[in-house]
Simulated scan of single mutants.
Amino acid sequence: MLASSQPAYVLHSRAYRESSALVDFLTPQGRLRAVLRGARGKAGSLARPFIPLEAEFRGRGELKNVGRLDPAGIPNLLVGEALFSGIYLNELLIRLLPAEVPHPAVFEHYAMTVLALAEGRALEPLLRSFEWRLLDELGYGFALNLDSEGHPIAQAGLYRLQTETGLVPVGHLQPGVFHGVELLAMAEADWTIPGALAAAKRLMRQALAPHLGGRPLVSRELFMTLKEPSRD
């Protein structure tokens, strides 16, 4: 049996058998799935998202056992839109991050993003930064200041995304294209440029879509449902 202690966050937890939970964890060593026994006790109270943890995992197979679970910092209290944003990040990681493949940079960026969400910082820049970092770490990234041929993005140019190759220049305005000035603003994370944040959201959706297997994100649908105005 292997045992390792490492920092962790819970991404998702669900009941398993009589008194256990099946938990997806994010660690520097990647995404791990483990059985947490006695989930109705003290350990179960820790098996919630956004709490910094120190966890010990045992076992050689894909399904580990939680040997120890301790708090490792102040819980990040997310409420309102920040909470749904955190749930969205967790779902992205479950859907995109391969099991047991180390991604320490993703873990560190996740920890910083969750803390920033808890501190009430602006949501959209945090989400776009996380999506971009995740794509890059998984090998799906592309340049924002160069087109697919390696030429500099022109401020006045128009571009569309080809997920296999990157940004391709187009000759005229058409649905789904991006203005060069928006792409250059994204490259510098300069969200003062009008339209840059909205364009970044569209770009990240296009970039993520092929890797989500055609299945919609539950967190995104739930968030949109809750934002719909009441019709009473």
Rank of each mutant, 00 (worst) to 15 (best):
L77K: 11
A116D: 09
F50R: 03
A55E: 09
G141N: 05
R133H: 15
G61R: 15
R121I: 00
L97T: 02
R40F: 14
G38P: 13
P104Y: 11
R68W: 13
E124H: 04
R31N: 03
L92Q: 03
A39F: 06
G139Q: 11
L26A: 05
R40S: 14
V114W: 06
L83Y: 11
R31V: 03
H151R: 13
G38A: 14
N76Y: 09
R95C: 02
L93P: 01
A154E: 11
G141E: 06
G80M: 08
G67I: 07
P102K: 09
E56G: 14
Q29M: 12
G41T: 13
L78F: 05
K64T: 00
N145Q: 10
A116K: 05
R128N: 04
V23R: 07
R40W: 13
I74H: 12
A43V: 11
L126I: 01
H109E: 12
N145L: 00
R121T: 04
D147N: 12
A72S: 14
I87M: 10
P152T: 02
E108K: 10
R128Y: 05
E54I: 04
R40D: 14
E149D: 15
G86F: 01
L146C: 06
H151Y: 04
P104T: 05
R58Q: 14
S45P: 01
D70Y: 10
L89S: 02
A43H: 15
L26R: 06
F142T: 06
P152E: 02
V35T: 10
G61W: 00
S148H: 12
A143L: 06
F57K: 07
V101I: 10
